[in-house]
C-alpha cells in the first residue's frame, strides 16, 4: 500500500518527467548519500562510486519516463540502477581496494585511535568485497541501506527466504573474517 513517502516520491518523479530541474535537485539531495554509500560499499572505491552515482542521476534525468509509479519503490529502482552499474564496472575493471599503506599515507596527522579505526574500517570493506556479489548486495541493502527483506527481495528478484539465506551466509563469512576468535 503506498504510503506518504511513496506519494511524495511519485510526485517528485512526475515533476522530473516534465523536466522540472528543481524536483531533480530535490531527488539528488535526498538520495545522493545513500546511493553513494551503497556504491562505495559494493565497490570499495570512492572515485568509481562517485562516477557511478553521477551516471545514475544523469540516467534518471534522461530516462525518467521509464519509471512507473506503483511498479517499484523509487528507492528500489535507484538502487537497482546503481547495482547494475557497479556490476558492469566490477566486470570491466579489476578493482583495486585501497591498501592499508595508502590509507595511512593519507591519514598522516591521525591519532593512533583514528588509525585503528581506519584499519578496522578497511578490514570491513575488504571483508565485504570478498563476499560473493549477491551476498554482499543483500548485506548492504538490509544492514546498511535500511531495506526491508521484501524490498531487498524485489531488487534482487528473489524470494524473501532466499534473501535470508544470503544474509545468513554473508554474516557467517563476515564473522569468520572479522571475529576470528
Amino acid at each position: 500500500m503506498p504510503n506518504q513517502e511513496d506519494a511524495s516520491d511519485n510526485e517528485m518523479m512526475h515533476q522530473i518527467q516534465q523536466g522540472n530541474q528543481r524536483a531533480f535537485r530535490q531527488l539528488v539531495k535526498q538520495y545522493l548519500n545513500p546511493l553513494y554509500r551503497f556504491a562505495h560499499h559494493l565497490l570499495g572505491d570512492q572515485m568509481t562510486a562517485e562516477d557511478i552515482v553521477q551516471d545514475t542521476f544523469i540516467k534518471v534525468w534522461y530516462q525518467a519516463k521509464q519509471w512507473q509509479p506503483g511498479k517499484a519503490k523509487l528507492s528500489t529502482w535507484l538502487h537497482t540502477i546503481v547495482r547494475h552499474q557497479c556490476i558492469d564496472s566490477y566486470r570491466k575493471e579489476n578493482h583495486h581496494t585501497v591498501s592499508l599503506e595508502e590509507v595511512e599515507d593519507i591519514a598522516v596527522a591521525e591519532s593512533a585511535d583514528n588509525i585503528h579505526q581506519l584499519e578496522l574500517a578497511e578490514q570491513i570493506t575488504q571483508a565485504l568485497q570478498q563476499l560473493p556479489e549477491r551476498q554482499r548486495t543483500a548485506v548492504l541493502l538490509c544492514y546498511y541501506q535500511g531495506f526491508s527483506n521484501q524490498e531487498a527481495a524485489e531488487l534482487l528478484s528473489i524470494s524473501i527466504e532466499a534473501v535470508e539465506s544470503l544474509l545468513t551466509r554473508g554474516r557467517k563469512t563476515l564473522k569468520r573474517k572479522l571475529l576470528p576468535n
Binding site: Q21, V28, K29, H40, Q46, A49, Y62, A121, L178
Partner: peptide, 30 residues
C-alpha cells in the same frame, strides 16, 4: 551484537561536496 558492533564501524566517508554540483552541471551542459 558483537558482529553488529564491528559492522557499524564501517563508516563510509561522504562523497565530495562538488558531486552534486557536477551532476547538476552535467544535465545542463548536455
Amino acid at each position: 551484537f558483537a558482529l553488529d558492533t564491528v559492522l557499524d564501524t564501517a563508516s563510509v566517508s561522504l562523497p565530495t561536496p562538488l558531486l552534486t554540483a557536477r551532476i547538476l552541471a552535467k544535465i545542463q551542459s548536455r
